[in-house]
Simulated scan of single mutants.
Amino acid sequence: MFNIRMGIPEMKQFWDNLEQKIKAKSASKKEIELFKKLVSCFKKLSTDPRYPSLCTHDIEALTKRYDLKVWESYVENNKPAAERIFWVYGPGREDITVIGLEPHPNDKKNAYNKITLSVVEK
């Protein structure tokens, strides 16, 4: 089992804000749906990063840019702009840090150049 952590500052702020809205019952329908999908994705990821429906694969362009092996996993599939998470192993041996959440890029050429990722907290 892996501990799922959020990258700083963007992913941590995003996740804390979303959790707060869910707890306060002020989240929109779209935010509630995303929250449920993310929770499901994180459960699968923590158990087995290679879980089949996650379709996990490394992203060479981001790995080169950030000098860390960056992985992409599906939050959802078969819909336009389906959400993807980007993550890395660490900082600890049993940690996975989610460093980005983006819709699937539509343009294939230089698709990952527009993505900015959070930092892994040490």
Rank of each mutant, 00 (worst) to 15 (best):
R5S: 12
M6N: 11
M6Q: 13
M6C: 08
E10W: 00
Q13A: 01
F14P: 00
W15N: 00
W15P: 00
W15D: 00
D16Y: 02
N17A: 14
K21S: 08
I22E: 03
A27Q: 07
A27L: 03
S28D: 06
K29F: 15
E31M: 06
I32L: 15
I32G: 03
E33F: 07
E33L: 12
F35W: 15
K37D: 14
K37H: 11
S40A: 12
C41H: 02
K43F: 04
K44Y: 11
T47L: 12
D48I: 03
Y51C: 03
S53Q: 14
L54T: 11
C55H: 15
T63P: 01
K64A: 07
D67R: 13
D67I: 07
S73P: 03
Y74P: 00
A81K: 15
E83K: 13
W87T: 08
G90V: 05
G92M: 13
R93N: 08
R93S: 07
D95M: 13
I96N: 05
I96Y: 09
I96P: 07
T97P: 06
I99D: 12
I99G: 11
H104C: 09
D107A: 07
K108S: 13
A111Q: 10
Y112S: 05
K114I: 02
L117N: 02
V119W: 01
